[in-house]
Structures are given as structure tokens and as C-alpha cells.
Design a protein around this nucleic acid. Structure first.
Lengths: 248, 248
DNA sequence: CGTAAGCCCTCCTCCAAGGTAAGAGTCAAG
DNA sequence: CTTGACTCTTACCTTGGAGGAGGGCTTACG
């Protein structure tokens, strides 16, 4: 089956001009050209076009796309690579959303925002560099940056409270960032938290923790505590704990 | 506190040239220019730059950004709009990720993919539909073309959509106000909604609705829809529906 | 058969959003 | 007072197309 420029353009959501352009620079050649000079594209070309568009979405220059497709002719490899890049871009977007949310909070309070925070997500390097080693670890594990914890605060007495706070904070951020309740990182957080509770001689396991979370939803005091931290948190925690218990 | 071009550029992750350019076209003027002609920026200008960058991220042209900032001088309003557009973009990205995952599956099996599926997420019409009314309004106003809405879709479907929107809005408010998930008023809302669905020939009852709500938590698309409305909403709805089904 | 409506072609110019480079002034430290 | 880092303006270049002119296909209809 072969398609004219108009058909391809409609499929892919590009203009005919774009197809002309890609032909001219040798990025996407039609599989056949009629006597009259009409361009005709086959399904192979459609696949190529799809890949081109993915790369374009990732702000590759057309020149770079050409190279990428030449260097990596295996479609599967290409797609996998693109998938990874897209995910990275999604994370960047999520940081931007977070920055904007921070800005909204500050704007509501009429406060001035910190200059470096203000451009969080725009400047990649800076973001990475701003993270301390510990922060990085936390970020990877919990997806947020902790305000620096001072060493002397972390003595045995309030270790548990600190952990609980971190846990709540982490779950809350996960909710804000839209992570699914069965996201691996959350399951990991739950596991750590439950382990920590165990270490402090609470007799607890995944099941009983889920039951406790359910109780939090029903109990006014605990629900309010959680909901004050973040609207919806008690419900999110309840479902996350349930899923964790079920998968355990 | 005032900053030179280099400092601002470093903060915001842009080049000095970009600042020059924005100055030239009148998009971002320095708050002061020294005798030697050096540009100096204050914190107001940093805020403006932040907003410009958010809009740029959303592929607004600089001309459109200028208009947007002129028409909507309230920072808070601006930020809220940008937040919404960013979330829409995130959804689009998620669709692209899905498309690429589909493509990988097909590629592994060596199958050829359906042409329309192949470009899912690229086609503008589709993702414009994902935008809320406000987002649409914004894009229209500042130079985005909207696809035409077909008339015949807009009667019967519309009624249902209106009810659904009201329902979601009501539940969302309940969550924000801290009502318990088994609050009588919520149970009432659920009953009405399910009744309404029944009237439109969905074969549904309390149990299947609860199952559906659970599915919403798991399904990326539906969860995002709800979470965009209000963080935690999908989880709240899931638990409320569960309790309603249980008491029924 | 002619002709009109859609397609399609090439070639040309134009646009935004900067990048690059040249040539020169400014500033702070030593 | 010199040196190096910083800044300015001006002018031209680049990318990824958009728009339009001018002119061929193709096909359906009378």
C-alpha cells in the first residue's frame, strides 16, 4: 500500500511542506516517485517518519535525527532509546510542574521566591549539582529533595519521628507528582517504613499496616493530620498500603 | 539586588544572547541600564523571565508571550494557566510514551502497526481535546488553532458530560473540605451519579461502579484526569465508591 | 472531447528565535 | 596602567519550515 503526501500528512499530523522539506534534506525519501514526479510512501517510510517525529519531539535537530537513524538502524533499538529519552523529558516536565506549584504557593503568600528555586527544571546541570549526595539518594528513592537534616537532630530519640516525617513527606510528594499507588518507588518506601517500625519494636507487617492506614481514613484525628499535610493523602496512603499488602 | 546578564543567564539557564533578544523585541526590559550601557535586572524581571520561560516551554511564540503577559498581569492567574497547560502537555507526553511502548511491542513481534495508532499523540486534534475549557480559551486567544467541534456530538453526550463534570466537581469539593468518604452527602452524590449513568443506558450498579473507580486508580489516563482536577481525587473517589457499595 | 476541481510539483521569498563573530568600550584587581 | 573578564552594538548566518506563484496531473462530469 502506498500513500500520497496528503495522506501521509494527515496520518502523521504534519504538513505537506514538512514532507517536502524532509525529502529535500534527505531525511525521509519516498519509496517511489511517479512519472509525474509525485511522491509515494510505503509503510517502511511511515515507520521512519514516526521515529523522526519522536526524535523531533525530543528537540533533536533534523541533522541529528538523520545521524541517529543512520547509526541505529534497528527499529527496536531506536524505539527503546527514544522511550528512555521521553521518560526523562517527562521527569523534567514534572519538575517544572512542581516549580510552578511552588511559585503559586509563594505568589499566594505574596512572598518572593528564591532565585535558584525559581528556575528549577529549566537548568538541568544546576539542578543536578544542587543535590548533595544524600539528597541525590533521597531523590532517587523518594523523588524529592529533603531540606538538609542536621546531624545532631538525628539522634536515637527522634529518629523514628524523623523517619515518619520523611515517609509522609515522600508519600505526599508522590501523590502530588501523580505517581501511581503501586509505583515501585512507593512500594519501596512502604517497605522501608514498615521495616523501620519493626525495628522500633512495633509488631507490624504489611497486612496490619494496611489495616492501620484504613483506620486512619476513618479516624478523624489521624485523617485530619494527613489531610492537613496534603489533601487526599489519607486516601492515597490507604490504597497504596492495600496494594502493597496484596502484592506481598 | 540587581543582576548582570551573566548572572541572570546562569540562574535561568538561558544564554546572554537570549536576554539581548528579549530586550530588543521588548519582551523583557532590564530595570536599569548603566551609563556604560550594561543591562541590570531586578527580582521583578526575574519573575517575568520565569513566566516567559514557562510559556516558551509550552511553545508559545515570543509575540504571543508578550500578549499573554500584557493581558494577564496577575502573576497568580498567569501561573495557574501555565500550570494547566503544562499538565496537558504532560498528558500528551504520556500518550506518546504509550504509543512508543505499543510500537515496541509490535516491533518485537515483527508486526506492522496500524497507521492511526502509530501516530497517536502527535496528531494535534487529539491532544487539544484533552485540554480543559480554560486551556482551550488560552490557546485560542494567544494564537493556537482549535479543531472544530462536530455538532452532532454535542447534544446527548454533552448532557452526560455536564453531569459527570458536576459530579466530579462535587466530590472534589468534598475532598477539599475534608468530608469523610462515607459522609451521607457523598453517598447521596454517588447514588445520583450512578442513577444518571443508568439512565443513559450504562449497565451499572454500586458494585460495578466501585470496580470502575478502582480501575480509574490503576489506569493512567483516567487517574490523570481526576488527579488533574484535584490531587488525591482518584483515591478518594475509589474509597468513597467502595464504602458506598459496601453499605448497599 | 473539453474543462473544472483537486491534487501535485518546483522555485522563490520570508519568518522566528536565536547563534556567531568582529570590533570596541568597561570594570576590578594587582 | 595593564590584564583579563565582562559587556556593548552591528551585521550576517542558521534551522525548520510557511506561503505563494506558476504550472503540470488526474479524474469526474456534461
Amino acid at each position: 500500500m502506498q500513500y500520497t503526501v496528503k495522506e501521509v500528512a494527515k496520518f502523521a499530523g504534519v504538513t505537506i511542506k514538512t514532507l517536502h522539506h524532509y525529502h529535500k534534506i534527505g531525511l525521509l525519501k519516498p519509496c517511489k516517485i511517479t512519472n509525474a514526479g509525485y511522491r509515494l510512501y510505503g509503510s517502511t517510510e511511515l515507520e521512519q517518519l514516526q521515529q523522526i517525529l519522536f526524535y523531533r519531539e525530543l528537540d533533536f535537530s533534523l541533522e541529528d535525527i538523520k545521524k541517529a537513524l543512520k547509526d541505529e538502524p534497528s527499529r527496536l533499538e531506536c524505539l527503546t532509546n527514544q522511550h528512555e529519552l521521553l521518560m526523562a523529558r517527562k521527569q523534567r516536565l514534572e519538575r517544572l510542574v512542581k516549580t510552578i506549584e511552588d511559585s503559586i504557593v509563594h505568589a499566594k503568600k505574596g512572598e518572593v521566591m528564591d532565585k535558584s528555586k525559581m528556575f528549577n527544571g529549566f537548568n538541568k546541570e544546576e539542578w543536578e549539582n544542587a543535590l548533595s549526595e544524600q539528597g541525590k539518594y533521597l531523590k532517587e528513592k523518594y523523588g524529592y529533595t529533603m531540606p538538609k537534616v542536621k546531624e545532631h537532630q538525628v539522634d536515637n530519640l527522634n529518629e523514628q519521628a524523623t523517619e515518619a516525617k520523611q515517609f509522609i513527606c515522600g508519600i505526599s510528594n508522590a501523590l502530588k507528582n501523580g505517581w501511581k499507588a503501586d509505583d515501585e518507588r512507593i512500594q519501596q518506601m512502604l517497605e522501608n517504613h514498615i521495616l523501620c517500625l519493626k525495628n522500633h519494636s512495633h509488631n507490624i507487617n504489611a497486612q496490619s499496616f494496611a489495616a492501620q492506614a484504613k483506620f486512619f481514613v476513618e479516624d478523624d484525628f489521624h485523617r485530619n493530620m494527613l489531610e492537613n499535610e496534603q489533601i487526599g493523602l489519607s486516601y492515597y496512603l490507604c490504597i497504596a498500603a492495600e496494594l502493597y499488602a496484596a502484592s506481598n
